[in-house]
Amino acid sequence: MKNIPIDINESSLVVMDLIFKLKIRDVMTRGLISAKRCDSMHHIQQLMKDNSITGVPIVENKRLYGIISIDDIINALEHGYRDDPAEKHMTTNLVVLDEDMPLSFAINYFDKYGFGRYPVLNARQEVVGIITTRNVNISLLMALIKEIHELESRIEPHPTPDNTYMLKEYHVRQYGFDEAGKASNNLKKFLQEHQHPTRLMRRAAVAAYELEMNLVVHSTGGTLTIIVTQEKVEINVVDHGPGITDVEQAMREGFTTANEWIQSLGFGAGMGLPNARRVSDEFDIESSPDGTRVRSVIYLNPQDAPAT
């Protein structure tokens, strides 16, 4: 398995851009924990333990001489040479990276050489840091998060047909009296902002409100969709039941199935559906035990309204 599961030749453009744009110096650990050639293996073991690391470069005067990894320490423990100097057991066949290289080099090195860490040198061949797969993963993740935020902020809002200037869907809960009416109030505010005639605004808002309250009072919850175009306000209500047993009866004023509790809240007088129909230019209702659908249309230009 690859150390870093990124194909540096064929990834998405964003990832490719990142791994070439980020330099090793942006990713590496700078506060380097190192040891000297004369330090004992035991001392280095302690350094690893105290700092939770698995490799210690051997550095003197910023010059890199070798590296002791956790494998070397295990060997020292196994063969009993814990007090030997590092110099004697360090890896000297070193693969290093240059701080100016792009991150893609590091990813490539991790796969190519299989080491867990690479010392990083500057142009003067001085040790300036160390890079591990953890550094790469964290910096890539951070850079990707930033990039995704950037890309998301550029996403255009959901395109709506040219002549639609409001399209909103509200989920309405049964007995959700705290929120009840919010959708209709929003519609009213929207129409007010667009300075529609007072009576038209009232009719549209009343239709929406009656239907919204119906969802709250009578359904087990549903969806209220409001579409406003230049020509009309269309309110679509879909609920999940229990359905209206006798639609014709429900359309009659004063017929109600609401209980006293709901009536004490000022609703359920049996006027909702008839009133919604009264203020609508078009009104359709269909109901079954699976749910009820209501569609109400109010034309914003009176001449568009069908003759009644």
Partner: peptide, 10 residues
């Protein structure tokens, strides 16, 4: 609801 209704009818 008293306020919301009042808003609806203007």
């Amino acid at each position: 609801q008293a306020i919301r209704t009042a808003h609806i009818i203007g």
